[in-house]
């Protein structure tokens, strides 16, 4: 009897551990900074959460409005102030030009860079663009696809 109870509990535990959310048919990866800044060295400052983009994979405006609504995961945070919206988005060659509303101007420089980097990484997932330029009022920041250092894995040769 005891063995059966133990086996049942193990089964329930396995079911609980193995529980998954609804499968996503067209996942879109939104990049956000982590809430806590005191990360372990193995974690980068930015990570992603998957959203269902079914039927909107080419609708950048819709996807961006979803992005600015902020993350669902409590471990992530919206890098932009509440009310920030996408004003325009266009592709010029390999450069994707984004204009966002001026609410983002109130961010300190490093947080603005962090926000723009998150937005750019989200775009790099969606498009083949090599650079993303984010404009906000008079501020403009260009992020290259490989122009961000998220993890320091440098090792000296000797």
């Amino acid at each position: 009897m005891k063995k059966w109870i133990a086996a049942g509990l193990c089964l329930l535990l396995l079911c609980g551990c193995g529980r998954k959310g609804k499968p996503l048919f067209d996942p879109v990866y939104f990049y956000y900074p982590r809430t806590e800044y005191d990360y372990g060295s193995a974690d980068s400052a930015i990570t992603w959460e998957a959203m269902d983009g079914t039927g909107h994979m080419d609708d950048f405006e819709f996807l961006l409005s979803e992005y600015f609504a902020g993350p669902i995961d409590e471990g992530l945070v919206n890098p932009f102030p509440v009310g920030t919206t996408l004003l325009s988005a266009r592709l010029e060659g390999d450069d994707f030009l984004l204009e966002i509303s001026p609410e983002a101007l109130e961010l300190p420089e490093h947080q603005f860079t962090l926000g723009c980097s998150c937005l750019s990484m989200t775009y790099f997932e969606l498009t083949q663009a090599e650079t993303v330029t984010v404009s906000c009022g008079e501020k403009s920041l260009t992020i290259r696809r490989n122009g961000m250092l998220l993890m320091d894995d440098y090792k000296p040769e000797s």
Binding site: Y39, A45, H110, T113, L141, L149, L150
Partner: peptide, 25 residues
Amino acid sequence: PGCAALYDSALTAAGQRILLPEVLQ
């Protein structure tokens, strides 16, 4: 202040945006 690398002794991050947790903090 905008996380742009001005100097890197390892010469691999020049011109990159340094988004390391330590730098941001």
